[in-house]
């Protein structure tokens, strides 16, 4: 009986912990002097808590309007549901803590923006797009 209860609890925990398979790359503008980033730092960037790169340049995060990749990114990196993430940012904006996140409609727009914007950081999927003129960084 105890084993059964433990199994059910573990199953529930596993069920709620499953994330969709992630296939995204984190890209930064070439001015950004890093090759990798800790997930916790990336999370802070997309929550508006880390706003400066090590060389004191402003960080410009950009998110993508396409639901699939955005949902995977915020669940895996920020550890929030898309709805929690949106509410978090609305709270930041409407209480005067930050300005809205830059949001672009698709991956190509994100790529183009990161290419031309100093300090920019974004994410795009590993497929469907030819990545060039930006730096791809790994997430530790």
């Amino acid at each position: 009986m105890v084993k059964k209860i433990v199994f059910i609890i573990l199953f529930i925990i596993m069920f709620f912990s499953i994330c969709p398979a992630s296939e995204f790359k984190v890209i930064v503008n070439r001015s950004v002097a890093i090759d990798s980033i800790k997930r916790s730092d990336l999370k802070k960037i997309f929550l508006g808590k880390k706003t400066l790169w090590e060389n004191d340049d402003s960080i410009v995060p950009v998110i993508i309007g396409e639901k699939d990749i955005h949902n995977v990114f915020v669940r895996k990196i920020v550890k929030k549901t898309p709805s929690q993430f949106a509410t978090y940012w609305k709270r930041m904006v409407f209480t005067g803590r930050a300005k809205s996140l830059k949001t672009l409609k698709d991956e190509q727009a994100v790529l183009n923006y990161v290419i031309v914007t100093k300090g920019a950081v974004g994410y795009i999927s590993k497929k469907n797009i030819h990545i060039q003129n930006v730096k791809i960084i790994s997430v530790r």
Binding site: A86, W89, K90, V93, S100, K102, T103, T117
Partner: peptide
């Protein structure tokens, strides 16, 4: 969802 971005630095 995240406000209207009139310019890059103005929302």
């Amino acid at each position: 969802c995240y406000g209207i971005q009139l310019m890059d630095n103005f929302t």
